[in-house]
Design a protein around this nucleic acid. Structure first.
Length: 849
RNA sequence: GCGCGGGUGGCGGAAUUGGUAGACGCGCUAGACUAAGGAUCUAGUCCGAGUUAAUCGGGUGCGGGUUCGAUUCCCGCCUCGCGCACCA
């Protein structure tokens, strides 16, 4: 596209203004203690989910959320807030490491190149970040504090009484042994079946398994000694403390479901001398338990199985382990199982019930064993039906429902001392009975499991841990950060030690101690980056007390739903630990959360290389300019909605920007842009123009607060169209429109403002020279008052006429005027008027028949 | 299966203490300017009837209800998207 064809010269002024903001540090935010810090201004901390700097660069999804936060950040700045709006890089991660394995190039090199590219792209979009606060999770000065926080976890335990983390030194003082303390640390070693990926040579968190499997990696269960974080201790608080957060209810629900709290009881059964606990949410149905099921992996299976069943049980277990999770769960509609030959004693009535094993019972939830009540549990019912096991009714539904397979609440029957009690009461009574008789107790169960925190990779934070005499201990704080050794060979070892095990010099810490060779998962750095932004260059603390006390937590956090559970849950967990230990002053990191909706390809499909529907932001910027891209992404529709890309839509907003441009400039004979002859330095008097401008000021401000950017833009289009129709346009009015538009399209507005300010004193800035530093315009209600309002006249709810009246016309007058309308008369003729409803300023409805 | 969120013109979407449905933009149609227009400007554009008008009828997934009045509230259903998924 040649320069003459460009509707306005964005390619000239966009880089110019980006340079200006950079050189003048327009968006640098002073911290408490800085010379230019103004304590009287309220703070506003607005945060984007920082990107993983992939080799592919930004996709159009990034600028969606980033533009939204930039608009709000700029708007708050214009409204005299201290705005903290930083950006950084979640730069540890597998792609860089996989690339290193392939090419031998150090992941740091790849990462740096990718970061440079991302930074360039973001700057070319004109985002007002405080680049002096840029953080990078792989930076040694950042790793240091990630490791320091890990050591906080390592050196803490969860105090059940206070429901808070506390230093293990408290326990030492009480004389606890090392083993006892190691058993309660928030960061601890556990040997347990984990998800080991042979193809990647690392373990994975439960939460990550699906994602990597979908990418073609192999994952198997394997018992290994691994570092775990005791997030389960915070399950209750992670649920309860969601209450005061301004988050979408759906995201809160997602987190609650993930934590998966269920209340019920643990009941102890006896299998021929072996005690087996089961968890149930329906202890009131205990009398209806007609069999028991152990998970195939349950440790007691081999002990309780009778000799004649040994062979078939063994065969069944083998068949289960060969099944994938998908076969076992998703696709397996047909229940399978086999009797162990053993019987269990129902504690409540002494009945002997058969003990089966079946893979519909999971070892990972509850106790890995269940009491089966086929009458009132659909899965048990299905199983019992298939294997012809007895079904005993113990709940009578309140409704007319069939009791078979009825899982709702009702009244207990066939249940001895529970008979006649409502489900709720029956639960309480049986729990009291279990506790009295030492056969069980009330119990709360969570789906959430402890967080598997170690990985066998090179490109991650090494654990600041030493091993000596078979025991682990912390690396002294003064020695942080513990950085990875320089290596040429990044390949996984295929063993659970990871590639760091190959650096023999590095491993040997002293003659008696060796280093831990595991590294942390990528989540570690993103768990606390929002805190580091508050004080990114601090070498003494992860964040200074002053900075933390001032910035507190994030006021608005914007990012994709893909982090609705994991990242947000992990970060909340770390934040609570830091709060418990007195390092931060808030209990939650992110006060308000907004998820931007996915941008689909033009074909309505998710953007992907294979579909060829990916839109590259660089191309859009080149063709239409950064302002147009920003504006389009905000104009597409509501921020939180999923919406398809339309290149024609980009053209539309570019056309709008061109209209704004032409309000101020016109082309002369030579094709140069010169100031428009319509602009005047006069005091604005045109009532229509003042009205539309002030409506715009009001609506745009309100809409930004509501994050309704699309409607704000449409209002500015209305205003621009009105300005365009005027014969004369006072520069002062133009300036206020530019202020409104500035957060959305910062380059073009600065450019126009700068140019008209040189000629028209009225549009000039008094203090600073640029819009970004100016105050948001205030609107004047007086300009919004209408001389005449249009009132709709309906007859029986149907539109029959419109009348124009002064807004202070009385009800009676309105009624009278309405009935004078010719068309209204026609529709009421021959009818009796029953009622007239007058909605002031809106409508009249005449009810007649 | 369970949970959550949606369904409004040819398209993206506006509008809710219940009060003119379709703002704004795209696309389309006609016209102006022009050597030309993929630039710009003007007019029109929910569907149907009506002479381009006035006007009339229908219309916010479907069916019912409440109301003077329902995209908005209530009941039942259909459908699309997302999440979880044998969680005892």
């Amino acid at each position: 596209m040649s320069d003459q064809r460009k509707p306005f010269p964005f390619d000239e002024f966009e880089p110019k203004w980006q340079q200006y903001w950079d050189n003048h540090q327009t968006f640098r935010t002073p911290n408490p203690g800085d010379e230019d810090f103004d304590v009287s201004k309220p703070k506003y901390y607005i945060l984007d989910m920082f990107p993983y700097p992939s080799g592919a660069g930004l996709h159009v999804g990034h600028p969606e959320g980033y533009t939204a936060t930039d608009i709000i950040g700029r708007y708050k700045k214009m409204n005299d807030h201290n705005v903290l709006h930083p950006m950084g890089w979640d730069a540890f991660g597998l792609p860089a490491e996989q690339y290193a394995i392939k090419t031998g190039q150090h992941p740091r090199i790849t990462t740096e190149a990718n970061v440079d590219n991302f930074r360039r792209q973001l700057k070319e979009l004109g985002f007002g970040y405080d680049w002096t606060r840029e953080v990078n999770t792989t930076d040694p000065n950042y790793v240091r504090w990630t490791q320091w926080i890990f050591l906080q976890l390592y050196d803490s335990y969860f105090n059940e009484k206070t429901q808070k983390a506390a230093p293990v030194s408290e326990l030492e003082a009480k004389g606890w042994t090392r083993e006892q303390i190691d058993d309660v640390r928030l960061a601890f070693i556990q040997e347990a079946p984990v998800n080991w990926s042979p193809s990647m040579g690392t373990v994975l968190a439960n939460e990550e398994v699906e994602e990597w499997k979908n990418k073609g990696e192999t994952v198997e269960r394997r018992p290994l000694r691994q570092w775990m974080l005791r997030i389960t201790k915070y399950a209750e608080r992670l649920i309860n403390e969601l209450d005061d957060l301004d988050w979408p209810e759906s995201i809160k629900l997602l987190q609650k479901n993930w934590i998966g709290k269920s209340t019920g009881a643990e009941v102890r059964f006896d299998i021929q001398g072996h005690e087996v606990s089961v968890f149930t949410t329906r202890p009131d149905t205990l009398f209806g338990a007609t069999y028991m099921v152990l998970a195939p992996e349950h440790p007691l299976v081999s002990e309780v199985t009778t000799p004649d069943q040994k062979e078939s049980v063994q065969a069944y277990i083998t068949s289960c382990t060969s099944k994938s999770d998908l076969e076992r769960g998703d696709l397996n509609k047909n229940k399978s199982g086999i009797p162990t030959g053993a019987t269990a004693t129902n504690p409540v009535n002494g009945e002997q019930i058969p003990v089966w094993i079946a893979d519909y019972v999971m070892m990972g939830y509850g106790t890995g064993a269940i009491m089966a009540v086929p009458a009132h549990d659909s899965r048990d019912f299905e199983f019992a039906t298939k294997f012809e096991l007895p079904v005993i009714q113990v709940v009578q539904p309140d409704t007319n429902d069939d009791w078979q397979g009825f899982t709702g609440n009702g009244v207990s029957v066939n249940s001895g001392f529970l008979d006649g009690l409502k489900t709720r009461e029956a639960k309480n009574k049986i729990i009291a009975w279990l506790e009295e008789n030492d056969k069980g107790e009330a119990k709360v169960n969570y789906k959430l499991r402890d967080w598997l925190f170690s990985r066998q990779r090179y490109w991650g934070e090494p654990f600041p841990i030493l091993w000596e005499d078979g025991n682990h201990k912390a690396v002294p704080e003064s020695e942080l950060p513990v950085l990875q050794p320089e290596m040429d060979d990044f390949k996984p070892t295929g063993s659970p030690e990871g590639p760091l095990a190959k650096a023999s010099d590095w491993i040997n810490y002293s003659t008696t101690a060796v280093r831990e060779t595991n590294t942390m998962p990528q989540w570690a750095g993103s768990c606390w980056y929002y805190l580091r932004y508050c004080d990114p260059h601090n070498c003494e603390r992860f964040v200074s007390e002053d900075a933390e006390a001032y910035w507190k937590n994030v006021d608005l956090y914007v990012g994709g739903t893909e982090h609705a559970v994991l990242h947000l849950l992990y970060a909340r967990f770390w934040h609570k630990v830091l709060n418990d230990l007195g390092h931060v002053s808030t209990i939650e990191p992110f006060q308000k959360l907004v998820n931007q909706g996915l941008i689909l390809g033009e074909d309505g499909q998710k953007m992907s290389k294979s579909l060829g529907n990916v839109v590259n932001p660089d191309d859009v910027v080149k063709e239409y300019g950064a302002d147009a891209l920003r504006l389009y992404e905000m104009f597409m529709g509501p921020l939180e909605q999923v919406k398809p890309w339309q290149m024609k839509g980009v053209e539309g907003v570019a056309r709008f920007l061109a209209k704004v441009w032409r309000l101020a400039f016109e082309q002369n004979q030579e094709g140069e842009w010169v100031l428009s002859s319509k602009l005047t330095d006069d005091k604005p008097t045109d009532k229509e123009l003042l009205k539309v401008l002030h409506e715009t000021i009001k609506k745009v401000g309100d809409d930004i607060e509501k994050l309704s950017f699309n409607t704000a833009i449409s209002q500015m289009m209305i205003c621009t169209n009105a300005f365009g129709k005027a014969n004369k346009l006072p520069a002062l009015l133009m300036r206020d429109l530019l202020k409104c538009l500035n957060p959305f399209a910062p380059h073009i507005t600065e450019e126009i403002h700068h140019k008209i300010g040189e000629v028209f004193p009225s549009a000039k800035c008094s203090k600073s020279r640029i819009l970004a530093d100016r105050a948001w315009p205030s609107f004047n209600e007086d300009f919004l008052i209408e001389d005449e309002v249009e009132i709709v006249v309906q007859v029986n709810g149907k539109l029959r006429g419109k009348i124009s009246i002064s807004p202070d016309t009385s009800k009676d007058e309105i009624e009278a005027l309405a009935q004078q309308d010719a068309n209204v008369i026609q529709h009421t003729e021959g009818k009796t008027i029953r009622k007239i409803i007058v909605v002031p300023g809106r409508l009249v409805n005449i009810v007649a028949n």
